[in-house]
């Protein structure tokens, strides 16, 4: 787009600021217990203020209310949307963005404020306008513009019930989305693979086979971990290994809270564990809360498959 073309485009786009998307219109249905109950069932929301008339009659409010988060639901167009949306100034504006290559769409923020609770029998009225359009921005998704719609809700007496601001990014996609096919599985992240080199690959191989091994010097019999080629005591390069009974105790521990790493459990407990055989091992403690872990705590380990690709020693309270 040349600067002149951009100017021409922006003149057309910014003309939508302040334009009404819809005049004040009544919802097709008054607030009613059936739709409230359907909502509460789907959300798993057992709040008696929404669905328990007996409870509500004795509550501060004296009657049931509609869930505030349902505010926008009452005025939705409904089933006809499956056949496409009727055109209005907002769809026209979106078309204009599309025409100029800003085909990407991403809802980024939605803010609802509530001024008044509504109850069965009330009717919600919606009016909406295009409140603002940002200047041209370079975003992580691509070049684009943010636009914000402002929906205002009122009741049958004209009293203001709430507002909703919805912020949407229209952008030029850096790559066209390719339609996903048939039975694409979700890409489930797995843990970072263990680095397996000449000197330690054998140890991880044993873990894969369900065994926790400890390297032992063939000459002086001293155990060592992590695996390495030479004995620190006698400098011998000859070694073999023993299998650990996976009993141990906590020497030190921490909880990895930040950053959350895809493929890992939330807030994993990482510990230095002294094995009964004498060497130390870094591994996760599972099966108890972080707050219950203490230094000196006795542990019993198991080799477990923790995701599709990863097998690890995991330690539980003994």
């Amino acid at each position: 787009m040349t600067p002149e073309e951009q100017k021409a485009f922006e003149d057309r786009i910014y003309a939508y600021v302040g334009v009404k998307v819809c005049e004040r219109t009544a919802a097709k249905d008054a607030v009613n217990p059936a739709m409230i109950r359907h909502w509460a069932e789907a959300m798993g929301d057992t709040n008696p203020a929404y669905t328990d008339e007996t409870w509500a009659a004795n509550s501060r409010r004296g009657k049931t209310i509609a869930p505030p988060a349902m505010m926008y639901a009452w005025n939705q167009e409904g089933f006809t949307v499956t056949r496409g949306r009727a055109s209005d100034p907002q769809t026209d504006m979106v078309e204009l963005f599309n025409e100029y290559g800003f085909t990407g769409v991403l809802g980024t923020n939605v803010t609802q404020e509530y001024f008044k609770e509504v109850s069965p029998g009330d009717t919600l009225y919606l009016e909406m306008e295009i409140d603002s359009i940002s200047e041209r921005k370079a975003t992580a998704r691509g070049i684009g513009y943010f636009f914000e719609t402002l929906a205002t809700f009122s009741d049958q007496n004209g009293e203001k019930v709430g507002t909703q601001r919805f912020r949407v990014l229209k952008f030029i996609p850096q790559e066209q989305p390719t339609a996903a096919t048939g039975d694409d599985k979700l890409e489930v992240p797995t843990r970072i693979p263990s680095p397996r080199g000449h000197d330690n690959g054998w140890w991880w191989q044993a873990v894969d086979e369900g065994k926790l091994l400890i390297q032992r010097c063939k000459r002086c019999q001293v155990l060592r971990h992590p695996p390495r080629p030479m004995c620190g005591e006698c400098q011998s390069l000859e070694w073999d290994s023993i299998e650990s009974g996976m009993e141990g105790e906590v020497i030190s521990y921490t909880c990895l809270r930040h950053p959350a790493i895809p493929g890992y459990p939330k807030d994993p407990v990482c510990a230095v564990i002294k094995l009964a055989e004498g060497t130390n091992l870094v591994a996760n403690i599972v099966g108890c809360d972080y707050d219950d872990v203490f230094i000196g705590m006795k542990l019993k380990g198991r080799i477990e498959q923790v995701d599709e690709k990863t097998t690890l020693p995991q330690f539980y309270p003994a």
Partner: peptide, 11 residues
């Protein structure tokens, strides 16, 4: 179910 309960029929 959530989409229907909020009357959002976007395909």
């Amino acid at each position: 179910g959530g989409a229907m309960a909020t009357r959002d029929y976007e395909p």
